[in-house]
Structure formats: structure tokens, C-alpha cells
Simulated assay, not measured.
Amino acid sequence: MAFKPNEYQQITMDDRFLNLDERTASRPNTPVNAIIGALILKEMFNLTDDELLASILCDVRFQYALHTTSFKSQPFSDRTFSRFRERLYLYNLETGRDLLHEEMEAMANVFVKYFNINPSVKRMDSIMVSSSCKKMSRLEILYTCVANMVKAVYKTGEYEHLKNMEHYLDEDDRKKNNLS
């Protein structure tokens, strides 16, 4: 016999991933909290709108994060995010209020309270430590970090630790190494 049974779980013919429903004009709106959650996931994972939609439709982890696992079909379409941004933009033009910015600020305040974060303390693991570092190459960032370390050690008077690193104290050293 040429047929051998497969003992592993297989996708059935009526699986919801194989039978994605057609979108109709009369379907209900996508919940705003789900859209905002999806946009946060998009930024966290650096996804495009199409990649985000594919992840939501096919990855149960995204559905779990958005609390949409119990939905018969996911409430997102290929135009959900562009239409949402368009409505926010038009509302901002009409009223001068940026609702998404207000929501992000409100959520940040909740996180600050929940995690007991002191907002006056600057985080050094942030990707936005300094806006100027966005324009720097990796080599420039490394050079700047080492130069700052050498200057800090020099201020303590521990000169013996600076063997062969004194050139970092020279302000023209960066130019000599073609890093500016």
C-alpha cells in the first residue's frame, strides 16, 4: 500500500487559516484598542502594514496580544491601518488634536505609575539617547564613547590607566581619524 498514515497533527480542510473570509462593506468597525495595539506591535517589530496584517491573520501570538483569538475572523483588513491614520489626520486638521499622541502619552503615564518609574531619570539603554547619534556611524559612536571614557578617567587623575589613549584627549583627534 502506498498510503502511510501521518501521526502528526495536520491542518484540516476547514481550518480558518485556509478559509479566510471575504471582507464586506457592512462588517463592523475594528476596535480602536485593537488597532492601537497592532500599531504598537508594528513599531516594536519594525513591520510594514502588510507584514503586520499577515502576522495578525496567521500568527496566534499577535492575536493573543490583541485579544482577538476568540473572534471568528480577525477584524483587520488590508486598508484598516491606512484608513485609521487618514481619519486621525483629518480629525487633527479639523480640531488641532492629535488623538494618537494623546493616547500614547496617557498610556506612558499609566506605565510610569504601574512600574514605579522615576520620569526625571534618563535611561541610557534607550535608542534615542541623543538625537545626534542617529546621524552617526557605528564607528563614530564607538569613538565618541571611548573618548568620553578617556576624558572621565583623566578627570579622576588616574593617568596610568590611559596608556596609549592620550590622543583621545586632543579635540582634533577626531578630525585626524576622519570621523567628523
Score class of each variant (00 low, 15 high):
residue 59 D to E: 12
residue 96 G to A: 03
residue 88 L to D: 00
residue 128 M to W: 07
residue 111 F to T: 12
residue 120 S to R: 09
residue 87 R to T: 01
residue 97 R to I: 10
residue 172 D to I: 12
residue 164 N to C: 13
residue 135 K to I: 06
residue 38 A to V: 10
residue 146 V to Q: 07
residue 146 V to K: 11
residue 100 L to W: 01
residue 180 S to T: 14
residue 42 K to V: 07
residue 1 M to A: 10
residue 131 S to T: 06
residue 146 V to D: 04
residue 174 R to A: 08
residue 12 T to P: 10
residue 36 I to V: 14
residue 132 S to K: 01
residue 40 I to R: 07
residue 129 V to F: 09
residue 44 M to R: 13
residue 42 K to P: 12
residue 162 L to K: 06
residue 41 L to C: 10
residue 54 A to E: 11
residue 157 G to P: 13
residue 175 K to T: 13
residue 100 L to K: 00
residue 34 A to M: 07
residue 157 G to V: 05
residue 180 S to L: 15
residue 158 E to W: 07
residue 142 L to D: 05
residue 66 L to Q: 08
residue 126 S to G: 12
residue 118 N to E: 13
residue 143 Y to V: 04
residue 15 D to L: 03
residue 6 N to F: 05
residue 4 K to W: 02
residue 173 D to C: 15
residue 109 N to F: 06
residue 170 D to H: 04
residue 38 A to T: 04
residue 159 Y to Q: 14
residue 6 N to M: 07
residue 47 L to E: 00
residue 79 R to A: 04
residue 107 M to V: 07
residue 95 T to A: 01
residue 20 L to S: 00
residue 118 N to C: 14
residue 73 S to L: 05
residue 22 E to A: 00
residue 129 V to W: 01
residue 19 N to W: 00
residue 156 T to I: 13
residue 128 M to T: 14
residue 24 T to S: 06
residue 68 T to N: 08
residue 43 E to Q: 15
residue 128 M to I: 09
residue 114 Y to T: 14
residue 64 Y to A: 15
residue 91 Y to N: 00
residue 176 K to E: 13
residue 13 M to G: 15
residue 111 F to M: 14
residue 152 A to Q: 10
residue 154 Y to A: 15
residue 143 Y to I: 02
residue 80 T to V: 01
residue 52 L to Q: 07
residue 146 V to Y: 08
residue 154 Y to K: 14
residue 81 F to V: 07
residue 51 E to S: 03
residue 51 E to G: 15
residue 7 E to D: 08
residue 34 A to V: 10
residue 102 E to Q: 05
residue 165 M to Q: 13
residue 113 K to A: 12
residue 51 E to A: 08
residue 79 R to M: 03
residue 104 M to S: 06
residue 134 K to V: 06
residue 140 E to M: 12
residue 164 N to W: 11
residue 137 S to W: 03
residue 159 Y to A: 12
residue 155 K to S: 15
residue 14 D to H: 14
residue 23 R to H: 04
residue 115 F to A: 11
residue 37 G to F: 03
residue 19 N to A: 01
residue 166 E to P: 10
residue 67 H to T: 10
residue 166 E to Y: 11
residue 157 G to C: 09
residue 106 A to R: 11
residue 140 E to K: 05
residue 75 P to S: 05
residue 80 T to K: 01
residue 20 L to A: 00
residue 173 D to L: 01
residue 114 Y to G: 07
residue 123 R to F: 07
residue 117 I to S: 11
residue 4 K to I: 11
residue 172 D to R: 13
residue 130 S to A: 04
residue 61 R to N: 15
residue 157 G to K: 04
residue 21 D to K: 04
residue 174 R to K: 15
residue 72 K to H: 12
residue 141 I to Y: 02
residue 101 H to F: 06
residue 105 E to D: 02
residue 41 L to W: 01
residue 51 E to P: 05
residue 90 L to P: 03
residue 124 M to P: 05
residue 135 K to R: 06
residue 141 I to W: 07
residue 74 Q to M: 15
residue 141 I to D: 02
residue 144 T to R: 09
residue 85 R to M: 08
residue 114 Y to R: 09
residue 60 V to P: 04
residue 179 L to A: 10
residue 152 A to T: 11
residue 171 E to G: 11
residue 136 M to A: 12
residue 75 P to Y: 11
residue 166 E to F: 11
residue 29 N to S: 09
residue 84 F to C: 02
residue 32 V to M: 09
residue 165 M to D: 07
residue 142 L to A: 14
residue 146 V to R: 13
residue 35 I to Q: 09
